[in-house]
Design a protein around this nucleic acid. Structure first.
Length: 494
RNA sequence: GCGGGAAUAGCUCAGCUGGUAGAGCAUCAGUUUCCCAAACUGAAGGCCGCGGGUUCGAAUCCCGUUUCCCGCUCCA
C-alpha cells in the first residue's frame, strides 16, 4: 500500500468519525472489536443507499417483491443450508509455520501413516481416543492427543501448537421454550435463507409467476476469526439480497442478465467504471454452478462489494429434504412440445451486496481534499461529492447575518421545505465557514438569505461541487431541490 | 491466530535522558463582520486506553490487557 492511499483511507476514517458518519461501537468502554455504529449523517446516508437499492429492485421490477424476515430462525434451517456442519471444525495452529489445520484432519493423517507402517494397534487406539474426544467435544483432550502422538506440522516439522479451538461462524443464543436439544438457536449468518423458507408463502400469496424475485435488506452476523479494515468486515453487518427464481435450464441467461444489471446499478451513482471489475470464481461453493464478484478498488486494493451467484436448486431442495414440505412450483406455461413445464424446484440466481461495504465505497468515492489556494493565501477544503439523492442533508439554509429579520425569513423558507427534504438551518459563524461545514458532510446546495431576499424574495444558491452561486426566486426552491435529489434522476437510466 | 506498529482534548499531533499536561483546528459565550475555513476577548473540554510493577516521583521505563492499523493467515 502506498503512503498516499494509506493516508487517504485513514483520513476518510477520521472524517467519518469527526462528522458523525461512523463511530466505533461502545467507544467509551474501549470499543468492541469489529463492531461499529452509524452516526447522524451515516444513518441518513445508509438509508439512502438502501432506498436506491430497494427502489431499483422492488419498485422498478414488477416481478420482484420485498420481504423482511426474522433474524431468529429454526435451527434446522442452518443444518439444511450447510452452515452448521461446514463451520464447526476444531482448528489448531502451528506457531512456527503459522499454518492452521483441522485438528481431526491432523490425527487422521497420523492414523493413516501408522497404518501404512503396519502399526495397526497404535492406529486403532489413536482413532478411538480421537472419536471419544470429538464426541465429547473435549478440545483440550484433542490437543493432548496431538502432543502425545508426536504429530508435527508438515511444514515446520515442530509440535509447537496452539490450543485447539472450535471455529463456528455463527453466533448462538438460547431460546427458552423449546425442547432441550433445540434450545440453541443462531443469529442468521446470511439473509438468503429467510427468503428461501418463505418462497412458497410469497409465491402463493403474491400469485407470483416464474421468473420472479424476492428482495430483502437485513442484518446478518458472522463470528469472523479476524474482522478488520474498518467496516469492510464486521461481525454484525447488513446485506441487501435478492433471490431470483427461474426455470431450470434458463439460469445462465438470468445469471448473465443480473451480472450486467448489478454493475449498471453501481455505475448509476456516477462512479467511474474503471474503479470496478468483475471477478469470476473458479473455485465454486458447493451450491453454485456459477459465481462472480463485483469488486471496487479501495485504497488497499480491489475488494468484493457484491456477489452474483447461480445457486441452482440447492437451497430449495435442501429445505424440501429437511422440512419434508414440497418446495416445487407448477409452471403452466407451454414448452416447445406443447405441454406445460409442470412441477419443478426452481433454480435461483442470487445478488447479494454488503451494505456496509457499499457505504464505505460511497464515502471513499465521494471524499476529496481540494486545494483552493490562491497566490495570496493557502486554502483547502474537504468535500464529499455524494450524488444528491444519497446526500444525508439535501440543503442547508443560512441567514447571511443573525440580524435584521434574516433568521426569521430563513426559518420561514425552511418550514416550507422541511416536509419533503432533510434540511439544515445554521446561523453560527461566517458564511464561508458554514459553506465548508456543509461541504464536509456532502450537502449538495446551500441557500443563503440576505437583505435582498426581504425585498424581492430571491435567495442565493451555492453549489457544493463548483462553489458557484446563482440567484433564484425562493418560490422555485422546492422544485429545484426536488429535481436535484429526485430518484428518477438516478433510477431512470437503469 | 502469528509478527510489526500505534493509543495523549471532538480532530491532527507535540511532549527529549522520568520532575505540576501543551499547540493548531473544531466547540461554546460575546464584540465586530455582510457571500467562501476573517479578527479580537473569554470559556469549556484530559484517570495520557485500562490494570499492575519499578521509583521519592511515571504520559515517559517494565509486564499484562483492550482497541485500532499494517503484513501473513482466514474468509460459502
Amino acid at each position: 500500500m502506498s503512503k498516499n492511499t494509506d493516508e487517504l483511507f485513514k483520513n476518510v476514517i477520521s472524517h467519518a468519525k469527526e462528522y458523525g458518519f461512523v463511530f466505533p461501537s461502545s467507544e467509551i468502554y474501549d470499543g468492541l472489536s469489529a463492531v461499529y455504529d452509524y452516526g447522524q449523517n451515516g444513518a441518513e446516508l445508509k438509508n439512502n443507499i438502501k432506498t436506491y437499492w430497494w427502489k431499483s429492485m422492488v419498485q422498478l421490477h414488477d416481478n420482484i417483491v420485498g420481504i423482511d424476515s426474522a433474524i431468529f430462525m429454526h435451527p434446522k434451517i442452518w443444518k439444511a443450508s450447510g452452515h452448521v456442519d461446514g463451520f464447526s471444525d476444531p482448528m489448531i495452529d502451528n506457531k512456527d509455520s503459522q499454518k492452521r489445520y483441522r485438528a481431526d484432519q491432523l490425527i487422521e493423517d497420523k492414523i493413516a501413516a501408522l497404518d501404512a507402517e503396519g502399526k495397526t494397534d497404535e492406529a486403532e487406539t489413536l482413532q478411538a481416543d480421537m472419536d471419544a474426544a470429538l464426541k465429547s467435544e473435549d478440545l483440550q483432550r484433542l490437543k493432548e492427543i496431538i502432543i502425545d502422538a508426536k504429530i508435527v506440522c508438515p511444514i515446520s516439522k515442530t509440535a509447537n501448537w496452539t490450543d485447539v479451538r472450535q471455529f463456528n461462524l455463527m453466533f448462538s443464543t438460547q431460546m427458552g421454550a423449546m425442547a432441550e436439544e433445540s434450545s440453541e438457536i443462531y443469529l442468521r449468518p446470511e439473509t438468503a435463507q429467510g427468503i428461501f423458507v418463505n418462497f412458497l408463502n410469497v409465491q402463493k400469496s403474491g400469485r407470483m409467476k416464474i421468473p420472479f424475485g424476492i428482495a430483502q435488506i437485513g442484518k446478518a452476523f458472522r463470528n469472523e476469526v479476524i474482522a478488520r479494515q474498518f467496516i469492510i468486515r464486521m461481525r454484525e453487518f447488513e446485506q441487501m439480497e435478492m433471490q431470483f427464481f427461474v426455470r431450470p435450464g434458463t439460469e445462465m441467461e438470468w445469471y448473465k442478465y443480473w451480472k450486467e444489471a448489478r454493475l449498471k446499478w453501481h455505475l448509476g451513482l456516477g462512479t467511474s467504471a474503471d474503479k470496478y471489475r468483475y471477478h469470476d470464481h473458479t473455485k465454486l461453493a458447493h451450491y453454485a454452478n456459477a459465481a462472480v464478484d463485483i469488486e471496487y478498488e479501495f485504497p488497499f486494493g480491489f475488494k468484493e462489494v457484491e456477489g452474483i451467484h447461480s445457486r441452482t436448486d440447492f437451497d430449495l431442495s435442501q429445505h424440501q429434504k429437511f422440512s419434508g414440505k414440497k418446495m416445487q412450483y407448477f409452471d403452466p406455461e407451454l414448452g416447445e412440445d406443447g405441454k406445460p413445464y409442470g412441477n419443478y424446484i426452481p433454480y435461483v440466481i442470487e445478488t447479494s451486496i454488503g451494505l456496509d461495504r457499499m457505504f464505505l465505497l460511497t464515502m471513499m468515492n465521494a471524499y476529496e481534499e481540494e486545494d483552493l489556494s490562491t497566490e495570496e493565501r493557502e486554502d483547502s477544503r474537504v468535500v464529499l461529492h455524494f450524488p444528491p439523492a444519497l446526500a444525508p442533508v439535501k440543503a442547508a439554509i443560512f441567514p447571511l447575518t443573525k440580524k435584521d429579520g434574516l433568521p426569521e425569513k430563513a426559518r420561514e423558507i425552511m418550514d416550507k421545505l422541511k416536509f419533503d427534504f432533510n434540511i439544515q438551518y445554521e446561523e453560527k459563524d461566517t458564511i464561508g465557514k458554514r459553506y465548508r461545514r456543509q461541504d464536509a458532510i456532502g450537502t449538495p446546495i446551500c441557500i443563503t438569505v440576505d437583505h435582498q431576499t426581504l425585498e424581492d424574495n430571491t435567495v442565493t444558491i451555492r453549489h457544493r461541487d463548483s462553489m458557484a452561486q446563482e440567484r433564484v426566486a425562493a418560490d422555485q426552491l422546492e422544485k429545484i431541490i426536488g429535481d436535484m435529489v429526485s430518484w428518477k434522476r438516478v433510477l431512470s437510466p437503469l
